[in-house]
Design a protein around this nucleic acid. Sequence first.
DNA 1: TGAAAACCTTGACATTTGTCAAAGCTGGCG
DNA 2: CGCCAGCTTTGACAAATGTCAAGGTTTTCA
Lengths: 189, 189
Amino acid sequence: MLDVLKQHIIDRLGKDAPNVEEVLRHFKPVRVRRNTILLRHGEVCKYVWFIAKGCVQVFVYDAEANEMTRDIVLENNWVSELISFGNRQPATENIRTVEPCELLAIDREGFQKMMETVPQFEMVYRQILEASYANSVYRLNTFVSMDALDRVKWLMEFKPRFLNRLSNKLVASYLGISQETLSRLKSKL
Amino acid sequence: MLDVLKQHIIDRLGKDAPNVEEVLRHFKPVRVRRNTILLRHGEVCKYVWFIAKGCVQVFVYDAEANEMTRDIVLENNWVSELISFGNRQPATENIRTVEPCELLAIDREGFQKMMETVPQFEMVYRQILEASYANSVYRLNTFVSMDALDRVKWLMEFKPRFLNRLSNKLVASYLGISQETLSRLKSKL
DNA sequence: TGAAAACCTTGACATTTGTCAAAGCTGGCG
DNA sequence: CGCCAGCTTTGACAAATGTCAAGGTTTTCA
């Protein structure tokens, strides 16, 4: 399981990154079944997870207690509630596995030790942050500038795996539309 | 004009931050009238701007060539197209002043020199990035979980200055709704 | 300061999207 | 492997939002 993370880091920092093994030591492997809650809103987020295998959903509740998903993260990526994690604030979002997952978790203490002792890790963190931000920006632009149909087309172009792999219900809540609307729009294409 | 930036940096790094003057040297003051294009999509974003005074709009065009705004940034904040700026990629977004502005611009060269020579500047950059990311996350959650009316209420609670200060048209495009809908919803409250 | 342009509001209507319900399907888990 | 909770699709209708148009108001800038 650690192999996947090792490769991920090498891809980013170059093969001669000296402290990879040192970095890996701080991560705790976790295997969880699908539908496992990793973070409940109101709690402080204690970990950053690397997803070695599986898929995870970040979601909030709307006024009628429906789950609306702000983000979906596949394997070989990072997931957390960075705002809560960084400032020890109560999280505003929930995180849950969508499939059985193999995760590598690092807690705040480990994270900070790494930031101090492994200079390259700061770089990795910044890359996580930049990638998460870029993702949000693109996604925001779909919401302000596209209607439901165009968002579905956007998803097919830029996130094609979501449609094969995930339930319609989940994808609809990611697009901010109802399951029925998604079902009808897909049959139009 | 530099005073505003100086205070901003001191607020973040503490009063004894040793290199504030060194930092300020890298910024070029710019005064521009309203409706000045700072970045056109397709171009590479050459600067990060600190807004000492005024207000700026980050926007894209929808399928009918309407301007839809992904972000609005007021004075005492940073604005850029960080993805384009960092990777020298063509920008996907446009940036334009909404009011007469006093800006402090730093280019890529200055930015990188600062990252190398002033260790605290790396911290400032990370804080810009984290704040921008947090902003996007909250905003995304309004889109996936709220209808138009709830987004207007959200704006009144969390961005009250926008409604006083900006045109209805601009605010509507920020909320992803039509001007007419915003006008009607506001009269309902 | 005054003319032109842009903006705001309101009405009527069109379109999109949501809601509820029902029936068939599927896949996760015992 | 089979059952059942949960998912998907479809229809009919309701609600939300968009579009177009017109008239009044405000803002801009020459």
